[in-house]
Design a protein around this nucleic acid. Structure first.
Lengths: 301, 301
DNA sequence: CATCATACATAAGGTGGCTTTATCCATCAT
DNA sequence: ATGATGGATAAAGCCACCTTATGTATGATG
């Protein structure tokens, strides 16, 4: 398609020289010496097979060939320059975040507005897929992931522990006259009893776990469903405090026991190391870390 | 004007890669290795601040940013490529020759047709200015000059000697009963008697030159005027044989004496050394030297 | 008219950007 | 499994390009 291209550096120099009608001024614009401009022009002239400039006493003028060439080059560079600038700022203008559903609905939803007010010309595109994303194959800027925090090549920032403790609606608690001790939970329906978080928590509480089947998966990222069921009074769910601080605060959920278990997982903000200085990423990181700290307290990694 | 340009080599590579949707194929087109393409793309991505390609298993795809960028780049390169090609062939398509008036009217005029038939897509622009041209400041490809032949930086090809001998119309010669010896010339009007060629020729003929004023300039390049006057029977002109071989052959002029004088000047084809291999220049040179030899005999430098 | 200032050309020399080489890794096909 | 394909990455070499330094020509200046 693009058949024969000339030496591009020479073309760039020619364009500037033609625009200024001066090698020296072109050199100034391009941040190089006059000698270098002279060199590049000569080079291009040899490639073209015709002089492009007439060397008059104290100025240079375009030859006929030069006059034919110059406008197209300037136009082409205009297009490139514009497209490049658009790509740069366009890339700045949209921040694409993938995040676990629960974090999106329970934390981001309530706080993202502040970020957008802080950065009015930065659109945020939220992607709440559950799967692990790979920055190399998906068009995503940053991710919020849950896990142990060992991802090579990625910069990660600790947000909060993925700890867990039983929660339920006040009404359900009242229905059995309140919960005095962990064993009282067994008198209520347990939501998703297969989640191994239950087993861990019961063990930590010193209770037998016979009544629970143990399934390998946990609820990371899908707690919102169970939380809704719990708020509706359908049973007891085991949830991460950080994600339900609002519900706990306004009484839609209560945490009957102080005991909180933890299996080592945490929530992290994650992005490719190489892109740590991209403005929009930096902006989001700075805001997110501050905002999380403000709502949940100092993070302890 | 052209504000911020990206690294152009990287842009060129990106364009090819985007077009092929493959780094390896792009490398093939550009005549470099796949590793180099990978390097350049990465470079550009860093400059843009966003990934341009998504690395899928066995192929690469443009990201959103890449999709925005690619079409413009392809378009711009198309413009450049076209303009460049046009400049190259355009430069090939017009040959600009400056020549001394006499050579143009007395030799080129009769032979140039053959050249144009030989090179139908090569237009010739004739410029018959008298002054010495400077290839650096004028938009000219080749020149035909008269002189001693010492021009630094220029390639020169000897065409023929700028020798001179008296010529006149047969009628004028008859009017005095024919010319037997050089002295007979003195009985006829001498055209441009101030030309020092007369002095030189008379001296060579062993005649006194008292009757001639000696002016510094000679007729090189303006012989056509005097030749016309001579053919009209107005007097005797001193002319270069090579330029009037046709007139001598068909009898419009006669050369009464074999004596030919020469002051060391000659006609030369001349062009910048650096451009000796430009096709159109090579074509003109080859043709001219052959044609001159054919009409005037083997040149003796 | 001599001197200075400007603008480009040219030669020589150094260096960093770009390329190649070599190797690794993942995926897809057989 | 095993090989083939396509890309990433690290190390190393080289050449294109730039700079420095100098020369040349011309116009401006007093």
């Amino acid at each position: 398609m693009v058949s024969q291209l000339p030496p591009l550096q020479a073309i760039r120099v020619f364009e500037a020289a033609a625009r200024h009608a001066s090698f020296t001024k072109a050199a100034g614009e391009l941040g190089m010496t006059q000698a270098a401009v002279s060199y590049q022009i000569k080079l291009l002239e040899e490639r073209v097979g015709a002089p492009l400039f007439l060397r008059k006493p104290r100025q240079v003028t375009l030859t006929e060939a030069g006059q034919r060439l110059a406008p197209s080059i300037t136009e082409a560079f205009g297009i490139i320059s514009e497209a490049y600038a658009a790509a740069r700022t366009g890339a700045e203008g949209v921040l694409c975040v993938t995040t676990i559903l629960t974090f999106a609905s329970n934390w981001l939803a309530r706080h993202l507005g502040a970020f957008q007010i802080e950065h009015p010309n930065l659109a945020v595109r939220l992607d709440t897929s559950t799967r692990l994303i790979d920055f190399a194959r998906e068009d995503v800027d940053v991710a919020i992931r849950a896990g142990p925090g060992n991802w090579p090549g990625l910069t990660k920032h600790f947000l909060f522990k993925a700890d867990f403790t039983p929660m339920l609606s006040p009404k359900l608690a009242e229905s059995i006259g309140g919960l005095k001790e962990p064993a009282d939970l067994l008198r209520l329906p347990v939501l998703d009893p297969g989640d191994y978080w239950w087993k861990e928590w019961f063990t930590a509480a010193g209770l037998p776990t016979d009544s629970l089947e143990s399934r390998p998966r946990n609820s990371l990222g899908a707690q919102a469903y169970e939380a809704n069921a719990a708020m509706a009074g359908n049973g007891v769910a085991i949830l991460t405090r950080a994600l339900f601080s609002a519900e706990l605060a306004d009484g839609r959920l209560i945490q009957p026991f102080d005991l909180v278990a933890w299996d080592g997982n945490a929530y992290w903000l994650v992005y490719p190391e190489a892109r740590r200085n991209v403005p929009k990423i930096r902006a989001f990181r700075d805001w997110l870390l501050t905002a999380v700290e403000a709502t949940l307290g100092k993070p302890e990694p």
